[in-house]
Computed example of a mutant assay.
Amino acid sequence: MRALLLALSLTLPASAAAQAVMTWLMPDLPPASIRARDQPSAGITDAQIAYVQAHWPEVQHRFVYANLKRTWTMLDAGEPVCYSFTLINAERLKRAHIVETGLLPPLQLVVRAEVAAALPLNANGEVDLPRLLAMPELRGLISEKRSFGTQLDTALRRRPPNSTLKQTVIGSYGENILSKMLLSRADYTIDYDFILAYYKDRNPRLGVLRSFPIAGNAEPIKLGFACPKTDWGKATARKLDELLASKEGARALRNSIDKWISPDARQRYAEQFSAFYRRREKPMLAPGGP
């Protein structure tokens, strides 16, 4: 039956297929999405989808929580679903029709306030990561299972043999590593600013931690909705793009993210954020595209 429904959805005219049901693939990753009884609640993409629901009541919106592997398997198979929270890169743009929904600060160095003055910063206030990794007096802690992208992963692999950066296999690495920093068992880690903000909201004691940009890794990250490379996916992406293309839509998208970003990051990337949301007031997909 599932295969039959999929086949029908892919052979229907795009407009008809898009008007039946809108299935969202959701990440179980606070605060990207904060799951409550298998429904979205107060996360970043939860608020974005709430805006879409309010302006697209003709369809039934349903939610499926899936890990990243399952999500992209379904998209690559052309299933009539859209992923609600993809970080946009060249490889994903080839695999899906993507509607841009916001900007996030890049990975940051998270540090205990007491040692912030000792950080090796360049003239732009960015951390020189190779120099930091060579400083024996500052202790780092990261998850050994996690990738931080090509540039940062390369710097981490090339750290000196006597580096005091440690890797851990502890579960719930974000929260646990931050907790260890409160106990002065580590001076710094690497994480997203919005992840830090989420845990600060849950644990006010984490308010003593600060975030700094990392040199060479300071460009904000685009995120968006990803729909399959099918006629249905193309029509649905264009519909979503149009729904968001207004001052009201751009403001809703910005508010969904701003609440999870630190004051430091909001100030640091204010110009880029403002430019993006001005563009988001109009359709961003090219006519006849994406």
Results as ranks from 00 to 15, higher is better:
Ile214Asn: 03
Leu107Thr: 09
Arg280Leu: 12
Pro228Leu: 07
Ala245Gln: 06
Pro106Asp: 08
Arg251Asn: 10
Asn122Pro: 01
Trp24Tyr: 04
Tyr83Lys: 03
Ser172Trp: 09
Gly102Arg: 00
Gln48Met: 14
Phe194Glu: 02
Pro31Lys: 09
Ala245Cys: 03
Ile190Asp: 04
Thr11Gly: 06
Pro106His: 04
Arg35Tyr: 06
Arg279Leu: 08
Ser274Glu: 14
Ile257His: 07
Lys145Trp: 08
Asn176His: 07
Ile34Val: 14
Ser211Phe: 02
Tyr173Lys: 00
Thr23Lys: 09
Leu152Lys: 01
Ser9Cys: 13
Pro161Ser: 13
Val127Pro: 07
Glu144Val: 02
Leu138Val: 04
Asn124Lys: 14
Phe63Glu: 09
Arg159Gln: 13
Leu103Val: 01
Ala117Leu: 02
Gln151Ala: 15
Ala250Val: 01
Leu109Pro: 06
Glu219Ser: 13
Phe212Met: 15
Leu138Ser: 00
Ala42Ser: 12
Arg278Met: 07
Asp191Glu: 15
Val110Thr: 10
Tyr188Ile: 06
Pro136Met: 04
Val21Arg: 13
Ala123Gln: 07
Val208Asn: 02
Leu156His: 03
Leu182Ala: 02
Lys94Gly: 01
Ala118Tyr: 07
Leu6Thr: 14
Ala186Ser: 09
Val59Glu: 09
Gly171Ala: 13
Asp231Val: 11
Arg35Asp: 11
Pro283Trp: 13
Ala18Thr: 15
Pro105Arg: 01
Ser256Asn: 10
Leu138Pro: 02
Asp201Gln: 12
Glu79Gly: 00
Phe212Val: 14
Ala250Tyr: 04
Leu4Met: 12
Arg266Asp: 06
Pro213Tyr: 08
Ala17Met: 11
Gly102Trp: 03
Met284Asn: 08
Arg146His: 02
Ala118His: 13
Gly149Cys: 08
Ile177Met: 10
His55Gln: 11
Ile221Asn: 11
Arg2Lys: 14
Glu114Ser: 12
Asp38Cys: 09
Val64Asn: 10
Asn67Phe: 10
Asp153Val: 13
Ser33Lys: 05
Glu79Ala: 10
Gln39Thr: 12
Ala42Tyr: 01
Ser184Asn: 11
Trp24Leu: 05
Ala250Asp: 04
Phe85Lys: 05
Asn203Leu: 10
Leu93Asn: 05
Pro287Val: 14
Leu4Phe: 10
Ile142Val: 11
Ala116His: 01
Gly224Tyr: 06
Val99Met: 06
Ile98Pro: 08
Ala90Arg: 15
Ala36Asp: 12
Gly289Thr: 11
Lys94Asp: 08
Val115Tyr: 00
Ser33Arg: 06
Asp28Ile: 11
Arg268Trp: 07
Leu87Trp: 05
Leu119His: 05
Ile34Gln: 02
Lys94Met: 03
Val81His: 10
Asp76Val: 14
Trp260Thr: 01
Asn176Arg: 09
Pro213Thr: 09
Thr73Val: 08
Gln60Val: 15
Arg205Val: 12
Arg158Lys: 15
Gly78Pro: 11
Gly174Asn: 15
Gln48Val: 13
Ala17Asn: 12
Arg185Lys: 11
Val208Gly: 00
Phe276Asp: 07
Ser246Phe: 07
Ser15Val: 13
Lys259Met: 04
Phe63Tyr: 15
Leu104Val: 02
Asp28Met: 11
Thr11Asp: 08
Ala250His: 04
